[in-house]
Design a protein around this nucleic acid. Sequence first.
RNA 1: AGCCUGGUGGUGUAAUGGUAGCACAGAGGUUUUUGGUACCUUCAGUCGGGGUUCGAGUCCCUGCCGGGCUGCCA
Length: 561
Amino acid sequence: MEENDSEKPQDFIRAHISEDVANQKNDGRVHTRFPPEPNGYLHLGHAKSICLNFGIAKEFNGLCNLRLDDTNPSAEKVEYAKAIQKDVKWLGFDWEERLFHASDYFDQLHQWAVQLIKDNKAFVCDLNFEEMRAHRGNLTDAGKNSPFRDRSVEENLDLFAKMKAGEFDEGTKTLRAKIDMSSPNLNLRDPVIYRILHQEHPETGDQWKIYPSYDFAHGQSDSLEGITHSLCTLEFEHHRPLYDWFCENLKIHHPQQIEFARLNLNYTVMSKRKMLRLVEEGHVDGWNDPRMPTLSGMRRRGFTPASILSFCERVGLAKRENIIEMELLEFCLREDLNKCAQRRLGVLDPLKVTIANYPDGQVEELDAVNNPEEPETGTRKVSFSKTIFIDRNDFMEDPPKKYFRMAIGKEVRLKYAYYVTCLEVIKNDQGEITELICEYDPESRGGGTPDARKVKGTIQWVDSTTAVNPEIRLYERLFKVPNPDEVEEGKDYISNLNSDSLTSISNALVEASIQEMKAGEAFQLERIGYFTIDSKAQEDGNLVLNRSVAMRDSWAKKQGK
RNA sequence: AGCCUGGUGGUGUAAUGGUAGCACAGAGGUUUUUGGUACCUUCAGUCGGGGUUCGAGUCCCUGCCGGGCUGCCA
């Protein structure tokens, strides 16, 4: 462990593990795993689990496996399995040679099922879905034993072998653990441990006609891999007695399951099922839509691994349900990008500016700072000429008090360029402003003057001779309410989708160097926000900028009041 | 209803019987060639009631409120 670990408070899981290590449980070894099911893309909630499992392994000089929990071939795909590995790697974690599948253990699991039958602790049940539900009882009433519960070991062995051989139709028979139909924990009322599924499996092909249930596969997989601490979310709490039951009755290494509260973020949804529907119904542009809280979507949006790691550290870890505010995520992104993103100039809504006293036909190169937070990143050249563009909302004809931007007769600084003063406003027949006529102070080249006079406002601009015109996409929260699941009778979260979550801007202008940026590379358009090149559009040869997050804007906030 | 689980500022999360702290958000300010950043200041909390104790967020009792569980999903 690192030295400063004693300084920062431990969460309840790390405290638990520290104690186990101190007591030499498992010989002081720590081994965790991240076990996603390959039935969808990883999201921010998974990132929390990934950081936890890989983070703990590292802190305790242990190991963390990546295991694909592929016990249900009906929803699982190779596409998902590949995406999962890509996302975990992207976050910066390494499972080394320890990529496993629950399906790696199908043979062993099957043997264990046979062992349970021989020990008279499991039986083949002929009840169908409805009958089984009826026998299970409910929250207040105990269940009834299955009429097939007392079959002989020999008959069970024979029937289970036939199930395995594919002699029965799906849903006609199951293998059930013989536990307790009157347990207040419904999971212990003779749970199904094998079901018949005539499905092709991505890893094992058509080898199996029966597949183990989660409960019969997960703990055993942990056990086989020598996992010491099996960390999972709260909804598995009721499954822990089952987890323990199998380890004990199979007499195998018994990892400790510990549950923690899953991550919730407001203004979005964090469930694969709900995301899948957004994708399938076309509400978003696929799993990696930049508005999705998937890791692939966030990557396309311009999030950095460092910002996500920082976020996962800050959300904390506890057993109480929580809803994190989106602002924390945005803070983490800005915090990281402020340090590492290069600055560039661009305008979203160009307004032509002619500098009356600037020489006709002259074009000069000015030095612009790449990143004021990292001076060693140096400067770049930006061109300047008689005709430039500023952002339309940086000019006002009737400015309010304390408006620092361009207005008639008011001197402002063009970032990295000159001081200019607006002389005249030109409008079209509809009364819309089409152009500003300004004059500049040649002495102010670079943004300062010999007399050191103060200029309060600094605005960004682009030069007409070199600017390029990308498509710019601005994103807002995907849902218009903090909790998308809070709906009127008869409606669901889809009705809470924010129809303004995507804004596409077609007439923006940015400095030419943006064309050299790579997809995923973060940069700041000064005073507008942090952006990255859209990877999907780039593959099609189009230049599209995604706004990852806007700058904090205390002026807008003040105006809004 | 039964079982499980949890309640600390707006949101999260610490304090393991001894000064209720930190972060984000909010408010105000200083600096600034980004109304950004940085820095400073500030607002605000132990679910209620009883008990044990010199001392309770922490232990006990009780009430209230939230979440989870009735797939051959994970």
